[in-house]
Design a protein around this nucleic acid. Structure first.
Lengths: 147, 147
DNA sequence: GTAGACCTTGACGCCGACGTCAACGCCAGT
DNA sequence: ACTGGCGTTGACGTCGGCGTCAAGGTCTAC
């Protein structure tokens, strides 16, 4: 199988595959004409990479999984190093989610405050003109303007 | 006030300030010698920028807030454009948090499965030797190995 | 023999928010 | 006069994961 077919079968691009090879993540045999030659096993490796990437794993984080498969294990996560990456990622996710939730609540609070202040001004602007009429008749000398 | 002092007072670097100026985000007057000259108002602008950045806002997203302050409003979020950015950011945050939680649950599931399989293998390896003793006395001909 | 579809390497571009370095100017203190 | 500490502009580097282009080689079909 050549690079274009592998790319298509794994839903990625030839450029990505060349990049993975450059990282030593997905090495390729070479055909006589210099073309990269891949086997069925490489489809599994590549799909493992893509799956983890969809989860937000960086390419280096997928390496233990790929090496685990290359070593002949049934799954990419059959090896301790992969489990360790899982653990690390889970704690990263927890931390990240907590941080985002904290940020969300703060932004939400700011937003609510800003809207309250806007509404207070709008209410003031809407309430004062009538009040001005009242003020104009009751206290005609208070016309020098506020603020 | 010169650039170094402003940077210190807002907890950032001179490089960042020059970058903001380059973006037109935080323009500076110039002293006779060519040095940038900042006023007290710029401290407020800069702190607004930094606060929003800590919330994960991109610099362009802080622009409406900064312009709002520059226009003389009491807060950076006293203007409609700023409120709109708040809304957009809140929905981005919600989407992002939801995505991360989904990913977290999937990774967690994979992790649990991988650990179960590892334990199953370990239990098999640990359970078989004793079983072999038992099997050796009760059924001496079943010693050709399993799997 | 030639068009077209594939492949090769190499190199630069991109995004954001600066870091870092070079080479220089300005100013205060001793 | 000289040192040290500020400032200036300009330019390149960083990180990840490729996209995109250039200039060519290879193979197949007509």
């Amino acid at each position: 199988m050549r690079i274009g077919e592998l790319a298509k079968r794994a839903g990625t691009t030839t450029r990505a595959l060349r990049y993975y090879e450059q990282l030593g993540l997905l090495p390729a045999r070479r055909a006589g004409n210099g073309y990269r030659a891949y086997g069925e096993e490489d489809v599994r490796l590549l799909r493992q990479i893509r799956t983890l990437q969809d989860f937000g794993f960086g390419l280096e984080e997928t390496r233990p999984f790929v090496e685990c498969l290359q070593a002949g294990h049934p799954h990419g996560d059959s090896c301790p190093a992969s489990l360790e990456v899982y653990r690390k990622k889970l704690s990263e996710l927890d931390e990240c989610i907590a941080r985002l939730q904290e940020v969300r609540s703060q932004v939400s609070e700011q937003f609510a405050r800003a809207e309250r202040e806007r509404d207070a001004l709008a209410a003031g602007a809407a309430a004062e003109p009538p009040q001005c009429e009242w003020a104009a008749s009751a206290a005609p000398d208070r016309n020098t303007g506020e603020r």
